[in-house]
């Protein structure tokens, strides 16, 4: 029982790192970025190439995966995304789906369509038992890394100058501009950072989630659920939503295997009926 909870938490925290960039970009520019998973996939594949082919140590590969995805994110943001912010949601959807399809086909072309795994250091494999609870070493690592990241993010958002600018811009971009905040730059940096986090998530998650070219399609719905259930007004919402989703998904697949994949949709539907603005969204003022 507790092992499942543990696995669920690891899964949920991974989802959070993958999706939190999306929550911020969505809150900031009201931009629907369905291609977020493509940046995660980029991080995953670059890790696979570095570790498996070039022999880069796993822990050195993680920050590089972050950087790689962040740079790609920045590049795309400056050249392409920036032209689409002001367009209707339909255009944003079409555009980002287009990116997803292109990334899927491109990765398929370069890397092949089979699932790939990262060769982990041997001491990360297997599990140990504490008070009868089976703890996977790798999952523990995920929880530690993601936990540190979450706390760090929270601190950056609440304590730093950049964080307060970002929050101001999320609250009201027009007012923030009036206050002399360069919203476009804040957004570009946030987009890059969010893409980087997704890339890191992709690198860490390759082992658990499975990495293949259709990764961005498979997890699109998970990311969307995280941001709609969690809301975009803080990162606590998406964090709790990720945990809920992670635990729900793992427990569902374990206890009711036939209905396991429906659990997350049930969560989604219940939340939508109960609180259409998202589970953790604050009441909207006008």
């Amino acid at each position: 029982m507790l092992t499942i909870l543990f696995d669920g938490i690891a899964y949920g925290m991974l989802l959070f790192v993958l999706a939190c960039g999306l929550a911020v970009t969505l809150g900031l520019m009201n931009f629907v970025n369905l291609a977020h998973g493509a940046f995660a996939m980029a991080g995953g594949y670059v890790t696979v190439v570095m570790v498996n082919r070039w022999g880069v140590p796993f822990f050195a590969a993680l920050p590089l995966a972050f950087l790689f995805s962040a740079v790609i994110g920045l590049l795309f943001e400056r050249t392409l995304y920036v032209h689409v912010y002001r367009k209707p949601h339909l255009d944003q959807v079409l555009f980002t789906i287009g990116l997803v399809f292109m990334s899927v086909a491109a990765v398929d072309f370069v890397m092949g369509s089979q699932q790939v795994f990262v060769q982990l250091p041997s001491w990360l494999e297997g599990q140990f038992t504490v008070f009868g609870v089976g703890i996977g070493r790798y999952r523990l690592l995920i929880i530690v890394i993601c936990g540190v990241l979450t706390v760090g993010l929270q601190l950056v958002l609440s304590r730093t100058r950049f964080g307060s600018r970002l929050r101001a811009a999320v609250d009201d971009a027009r007012v923030a501009r009036g206050l002399g905040i360069n919203v476009n730059r804040v957004f570009a940096l946030t987009f890059a950072f969010g893409s980087g986090l997704a890339g890191l998530g992709g690198a860490l998650g390759a082992e658990i989630l499975g990495l293949d070219p259709i990764f961005p399609l498979k997890f699109m719905i998970y990311f969307l659920i995280v941001v709609t259930v969690g809301g975009t007004s803080s990162i606590t919402g998406p964090f709790l939503a990720s945990l809920l989703l992670g635990i729900g998904d793992v427990a569902g697949k374990y206890y009711v295997p036939t209905f396991g994949s429906f659990v997350i949709y049930t969560i989604m539907i219940v939340v939508l009926i109960w609180r259409p603005q998202g589970l953790f969204a604050r009441p909207v003022g006008r």
């Binding site: 079409l94 789906i97 399809f101 899927v104 491109a106 072309f109």
Partner: peptide, 20 residues
Amino acid sequence: PQYWPFWIGLLLVVLVMVGR
């Protein structure tokens, strides 16, 4: 045949960038 999605994607991106 295998990379058909790529062309779909490219078309979508171009369609939006140039303006529907």
